[in-house]
Design a protein around this nucleic acid. Structure first.
Lengths: 231, 231
DNA sequence: CAGTATCCGATGCGATACTG
DNA sequence: CAGTATCGCATCGGATACTG
């Protein structure tokens, strides 16, 4: 941030000096959500330049919030929160809860980002209500750049969920066609699958069961249950 | 902050966009501590330029966190937190608690500021353990600029505490002579009156009772009880 | 995959002075 | 008291390309 420190011994000010720097809290959110590798962090914070991400990771390491170490297989570098960093989780969650409660929905829905949405959905998807076999779901978005229209989620029981932008070649069990705004609103808990389907803002084609319990397996944003407040 | 928004619908990012701007959290702390007037805010955030303070207040107003209205007597302008702003208090307090726990004491004690310290002490002073009459306490700091050496706290039962930098002319009940670092450490809960007096880093002269229960009437920082952690 | 290097532009913000 | 006005620099950070 511009010119140096606050020069205040107050712990609030000292914490703010570390945390209230552009992108930092968003990075922390991404790490708290489970990303540990450089390129995974990039996916979660897509508009941040790699140079700045690298810089911030160093800053956080210097502040004792993050540590960089070689991970299990392949010995690739991984970034992990230290105990100090983990203690920031309630703060980051409180940011989210406050944002969901007090920031107008319209503002959120003006900041659509397919990649981020899909990345988040992949993470929170709940395979339990899904069939015991592998399921492939294809999302088709209208009103986005050509190369971001199609996305595939491949859910393999016991093996987690994969996200692809190129056709994996599997048979598709369910097609979800929608505009990005609607899908984002659903993810944020501002809309529901049922209502969107009824009003034809979402079309579900394919496996009836997958379609009918989509609201269940599609995990929502961690803040979706926060009650919206009005000024 | 540099170039526009994060462009993320995520509530964490949207909240961070509003809150993680230089000085903002420190201003909020000051408002939560009770300051409502422009020049009071300036005292609590002394190194912030008035132009920027004014700008930030407008931003916070636009974000629905602060409202500006004419106050009781004199009809002067006052800034108050809205409900939305009040809901940020746990976040700001969590910043402080985290800072106190995880940021090295040395860093805090490198950012001394007499004015801020006295301003905070004035606010948290507890008159209950003090005599029923008016008490005047003079602080004398070594190692600070001439014009910041002497400070007077005047405690009038039932009327709160006043802070002066020019001699109010009253008889002084207690003189507290110290270096700024020691007094700050005491305020932050990193040191105690008893230890500092024993080691002669603080000299108390005057009313024996006032001197002996100074640790009690001198309210400490709201974060003083937070346990210090080590990386 | 995991970053660096470089460059340059926008702007945040600090300092100071001034006003109703 | 409660701010505005002005100025100019520093630096933050965005974009892009490149490397081991």
């Amino acid at each position: 941030m511009a010119q140096g420190s606050y020069m205040q011994f107050c712990p609030v000010a000292m914490a703010a000096e570390i945390l209230c720097t552009r992108w930092t809290v968003v990075m922390l959110r991404e790490m708290m959500a489970g990303s540990t590798r450089f390129n995974d962090l990039r996916r979660g914070v897509p508009r941040m330049s790699p140079a700045l991400l690298s810089q911030r990771l160093k800053d956080l390491e210097a502040a004792g919030i993050v540590e960089r170490k070689r991970g299990g297989e392949g010995g690739l570098y991984e970034y992990h929160l230290t105990s100090s960093g983990r203690e920031l989780k309630p703060i980051v969650m409180a940011f989210g809860a406050w944002g969901q409660r007090w920031i107008e929905s319209e503002i959120a829905l003006d900041q659509l980002d397919v990649q981020l949405l899909m990345w988040d959905m992949r993470r929170n998807l709940d395979p339990k209500p899904m069939p015991a076999r592998r399921s492939t779901i294809e999302f088709l978005f209208s009103g986005v750049p050509r190369n971001q229209r199609q996305w595939w989620l491949i859910v393999t029981p016991g093996q987690g969920t994969e996200l692809c932008t190129i056709d994996p070649g599997y048979d598709v069990d369910l097609y979800v066609a929608s505009d990005l705004r609607t899908m984002t609103a659903i993810w944020m808990g501002l809309d529901s699958v049922r209502a969107a389907v009824r009003e034809e803002r979402v079309q579900l084609t394919g496996d009836k069961t997958l379609a009918s319990n989509m609201q269940t397996w599609l995990g929502l944003s961690p803040f979706a249950r926060e009650r919206k407040m009005v000024a």
